[in-house]
Simulated assay, not measured.
Amino acid sequence: MPRKKTTDAAADKKPTTAPAPKTKKQPALLAYYVPDREKPYWTKIGAAFSHEDGKGMTLDLELLPASGGRIVLREPKAETDNDK
């Protein structure tokens, strides 16, 4: 009986390039909880990310305020050498 010719599957594959690593998307705005009182302490509670089409944002909150107050959205401060 004739032997079946085998091929090396690894040799038949074309070389592929590794996919580019995903970079962490930076938030467009940061979300802070500000209680209704004199000299309130702002607590960072999340971030807002721009949609790719530029027509909206996704608000990603880590916490939800349980009492009165407000949520303030602010642009992130520019990082300086002292912040690193």
Results as ranks from 00 to 15, higher is better:
M1D: 08
M1K: 05
M1P: 03
M1H: 09
M1T: 09
P2M: 05
P2H: 02
R3V: 13
K4G: 05
K4F: 12
K4Q: 11
K5E: 07
T6K: 15
A9C: 08
A9Y: 03
A9I: 08
A10M: 08
A11S: 08
D12L: 10
D12V: 02
D12G: 13
D12C: 00
K13Y: 01
K13V: 04
K14T: 06
K14W: 05
K14N: 11
K14F: 03
P15Q: 08
T16G: 05
T16R: 07
T16W: 04
T16E: 13
T17K: 14
T17I: 11
T17N: 08
A18E: 14
A18F: 02
P19W: 03
P19G: 05
A20P: 02
A20R: 13
A20W: 09
K22S: 12
T23P: 01
T23L: 12
K24Y: 07
K25E: 14
Q26V: 14
Q26H: 12
P27W: 04
P27D: 06
P27L: 04
P27M: 01
A28Y: 13
A28C: 09
L29E: 07
L29R: 07
L30D: 09
L30T: 08
L30I: 10
L30Y: 06
A31V: 07
Y32E: 07
Y32H: 09
Y32L: 04
Y32F: 15
Y32D: 07
Y33D: 03
Y33P: 02
V34S: 13
V34G: 07
V34N: 07
P35W: 09
D36E: 15
D36L: 11
R37H: 11
E38F: 15
E38P: 10
K39A: 15
K39V: 14
K39N: 15
K39D: 14
Y41C: 13
Y41V: 15
W42C: 12
W42K: 15
W42L: 15
T43V: 14
K44N: 11
K44G: 10
K44M: 13
I45F: 06
I45T: 06
A47S: 14
A47H: 02
A47V: 00
A48P: 02
S50W: 05
H51A: 12
E52R: 02
E52W: 06
E52Q: 11
E52D: 12
D53I: 00
K55T: 08
K55V: 05
K55D: 10
K55I: 03
G56E: 03
M57S: 06
M57D: 05
T58V: 04
T58P: 00
L59N: 03
L59H: 08
D60M: 06
D60P: 00
L61R: 01
L64V: 11
L64E: 04
P65V: 00
P65W: 02
P65N: 00
A66W: 01
A66E: 11
A66G: 06
A66R: 10
S67V: 09
S67T: 10
G68V: 00
G69W: 03
G69S: 02
R70H: 10
V72T: 03
L73I: 01
L73V: 03
L73K: 01
R74E: 14
E75F: 04
E75R: 13
E75K: 14
P76Q: 03
P76N: 00
K77Q: 10
K77I: 06
K77H: 01
K77A: 13
A78P: 05
E79A: 12
N82F: 15
K84V: 11
